[in-house]
Each structure stands twice: as C-alpha cells, then as structure tokens.
Amino acid sequence: MEYVRKLMDRVSVEGVKIELLNTAYGNGDTFLAKLDPRTPFLWYLYFGIAPWFIHDVILLFGLFFLMALTTMMSRVSPLIIGILCLGLLSQAGYLLIVSWLFGGGGETILPLLKLTLKLSVISLASITVFCSMDPEKLSDGLLSIGVPKQVSFGIAYGYRMLPSLLEEYHHIFLSFRLRGKAPERHGILYLRSIVYFLKIAVLSFYPLILSIAKRTRTTVEALETKGFSYAYQSPEVKRIKLSHMKFTRRDALFLAVSVIYVAALYVLAAQFNL
C-alpha cells in the first residue's frame, strides 16, 4: 500500500514533464548532440533499415551492442528506456505464451526472439538519433534534407508548446480532483481508484483542447506579424537559417568508426558461419 502511494507521488505530472523536456533538450552536451544533424540521418539510414534484412544472430547481437553503446552515449532519460523495456518485455512475454499455447517449442520461439532482437536494434537506433538531437536540430536537419517548412517548424513549435500544454493539463486535472469525489474505498487491486483516475485523465483533455484553440489565435496572428508566411516561399531565408550547419571532423570520425565496426562485425560473423 505504502509503496503504491510512494510510486504515485513519484509519477507526478510534474515529473513526467521534466523527463520529457530533458529527453528533448537536456542532452545538448553529449558527443552525439554536437554532430551535424545530417550525420545521424545518414547513420540511421543504415541502422534503422538494415536490421530488417539481417538474419544472422551474431551480426544482430553485434549491432545491438553498438546501439546500446550509442544509446548510453546519448544519455537518454530513464523514462524512455523504461517504456522501451516495458514494450520489449511484454512482447517477448506474449510471444512465449502464444508459442506455448499453440504447441510450439524452442524452434518457434527462437525466430520470434530474433525478431525481438531486430526490433530492439531499430528502436535503440531511433532513440539514439532522435533523443540526441534537440527538436531545433531535428527540425533544421529535416529542413535541410528537403522536408517542407511547415513540418520542420511544427516540430520545433510543438516542443516549445509542450511544457505549457502539460502544465495546463495538470491544472485541469487538478481542477477535477479539487471538485470531484474519489471512491471511498480503493476496491480490489485499487481497481476503483484506477478507474477514477483514468476517467479524469481522459476527461481533462476536452477542456485542454478548447483552451488551446483559444490560445492559438494569438500565435497565428503573431506568426503573421513576424513574417512567417512572408518567408514561406523564400529560398533565401532557408539558406540563412541553415547557414550554421556544417560537417566537421567529429562527423567524419563518428561515421568512420561506425563503418569500421560494422565491417568488422561482418568479418566476424562470416568466420563463425564457415
């Protein structure tokens, strides 16, 4: 009981907000964060796609090891790792149950575990790339590879709004609590309380949506006065905006090490498979 309460205290809206912001902006000083945004994109092109086509367990383990390393380097928030682990564990667990129910043995589970391994390599690669870049960098990077301006602006703006949205959501959520009535008994396995909280968690979204709609008016007008739509067509503005991006020795080093590592992996895997 006491543990549940302590856990609830820790998993506060405030805490989630801080974790999210940290995930987005808090890792600006890592090695990976200092790369030019185009480098991770290039890198991701291989590590995000290739695992689908690799069936060699040794290769996959090697890649997994590299991804774990880069994920650690990008100092991802524990929240994200937690969510990832939860996802992978539940998937593995469900695979186990399914294969057992349908009378499969080790020979069915193995390929399924291989799939889980592939998925974790890809997930970790995504985390490395997207968590090591703050939204600004990400949006500049996307803009530079030809994604429309609205999308890249939307990403940056979405993150800028995130803290205020979370705060407002929190306020509305508390409004429900400060006027509502919680179930008097928690019920079996806290079920009643859980249902109560889930209900207000969902209900809180409606007022939030309405108030966002109201806020947006000022923002849209401000965008207009700040010349956003004026700059929309201008390639000149894009050039100025992206002029700060350039490849450095750091980028070359990162790509080179990755290539050498993967090449070595292939050699190793080939030797085992002989």
């Binding site: 902006y25 600004e136 940056a156 800028r160 806020r215 000022t218 923002t219 401000a222 965008l223 700040k226």
Partner: peptide
C-alpha cells in the same frame, strides 16, 4: 499582445 506568452514562438 495581452496574452504575450502565446506570441513567443521559438523555444
């Protein structure tokens, strides 16, 4: 604006 917070656009 009066609700100047909404006029800040960049992070």
């Amino acid at each position: 604006y009066q609700d100047f917070e909404n006029q800040l656009i960049r992070p």
